[in-house]
Design a protein around this nucleic acid. Structure first.
Lengths: 233, 233
DNA sequence: GGAGAAGTTTGATCCAGCGCAAATTCATTG
DNA sequence: CAATGAATTTGCGCTGGATCAAACTTCTCC
């Protein structure tokens, strides 16, 4: 479960939470961290359960979903390498607010919540980095909220794809590819629509050559056209 | 515009951002703060404008709204006394992400962004408090997102009222009253529906004696019934 | 390589709630 | 207190997209 080999401080430099920190502090954080491989499909934690660890992803991808009492769920966020997750409850009510599942083989670092808190107390820069990270996510959530309340399903899906490109896009032969494996249901759960509507819209875009869908990966052939749809034609 | 009288450090103790801080630090924060009265209707800042100050409310209420390029807007949050607003951009891109308007006569404290940042650097507790505040708001935003994507308009409005009660409810003769003055449009903009739908639903509840609407204030006569609606009958 | 599971596509139907319009009530100000 | 503007209520038709149903395709694992 837990690697016995010490965590390399250099690995921490790629994590946004530890950006702009002196090497000594990275060493300190590394000393308290544990590495763990996360095989694809692994449920990392469950919504409502006490936050036993605070997490950061070194590689791979993690899906964060939230379910209501009725079972209806949304995809809160996809976590890529260098991003933290399940860290906020350390400072609030101590309960994970959502489920986390590895969507590809991944590697995480994790800390005991008390250790991370102590680290933030000693080094305000870490706490400040965390405000920046959480603040950015809050801004995104509010933007999604506005879109969901006011825009049509196709605009929202276009926005979703553009945001994912921004987060995890890489250039390929025929366009920009989203590095996370995504099912239609995932797209729907981010954009706030149903699997069926998402499938219809993506199929139409694929017919128009705007988009290529391979395996569980999407390649956006024309980001410009996608932009135009997102802006409402 | 700016009060010449020094800010009283005791006033800071009621602000969540400065919770659990030694008096000396409160003095330090007070020394850098400015007081300003905010008459009802005053636009405090505009979306997209550089964040010239970081704000906290001593009394009154402020409405934070976000508009899209098409003019459609949502109500991101209502700020009550003791809450901070317009503080996140200090740590991110430096631009206010939304509009802020006083909805009743209010009094604010404000800081120069650089001063607040320095304060957080010196006292990690302040930065940690801020993570807790922003983290809580993020959780709320994600909850709203899920509700908006999956629940009917009446459930969302019921949830909205309950959340507002939680934030600014006070007991009165005939039920629990929400302390912010709210127009139907405000309710609609929080719940993510139209003014018309909100009006219809509230009117129906008023007919059933579940709710009393006076001036621009709502009194929830039966929070229990409201709870039941929020849970889906 | 084949059986079963998981994911996708597409069709048909239906309704919550949006958009538009108009009447009515309420609040503010000279 | 009248008058003007703002906010609310209510009616009605229409539609985007949810829901239900079913065929089809693609993965996964033995």
């Amino acid at each position: 479960m837990t690697a016995l080999t010490p965590v390399d401080a250099k690995a921490l430099a790629d994590i946004a939470l530890f950006a702009a920190l002196p090497p000594a502090v990275l060493e300190e954080a590394a000393a308290m961290a544990r590495t763990r491989p996360l095989p694809r499909g692994l449920r990392i934690f469950d919504q409502g359960e006490p936050a036993g660890r605070a997490h950061a992803l070194l590689s791979g991808g993690v899906r964060i979903t939230q379910a209501g009492s009725d079972g209806e769920e949304i995809l809160v966020r996809l976590i890529g390498s260098g991003e933290i997750f399940g860290c906020v409850p350390v400072l609030t009510d101590g309960l994970y607010p959502a489920d986390a599942t590895a969507i590809v083989d991944a590697v995480e670092l994790s800390w005991d919540p008390a250790d991370l808190l102590a680290l933030m107390q000693r080094h305000s820069r870490i706490a400040i980095n965390m405000v920046a990270i959480v603040g950015k996510r809050l801004g995104e959530a509010q933007e999604r909220l506005r879109e969901l309340a006011t825009q049509s399903a196709d605009r929202r899906i276009a926005r979703t794809l553009l945001r994912l490109l921004d987060q995890a896009g890489c250039r390929t032969g025929d366009g920009l590819r989203i590095d996370f494996p995504l099912r239609r249901k995932d797209i729907a759960d981010i954009a706030g629509t149903t699997l069926h509507t998402a499938s219809r819209i993506l199929a139409a875009w694929q017919r128009d050559g705007l988009l290529i869908s391979r395996n569980r990966h999407l390649v956006i052939a024309s980001p410009e056209a996608m932009d135009r749809i997102a802006e409402g034609n």
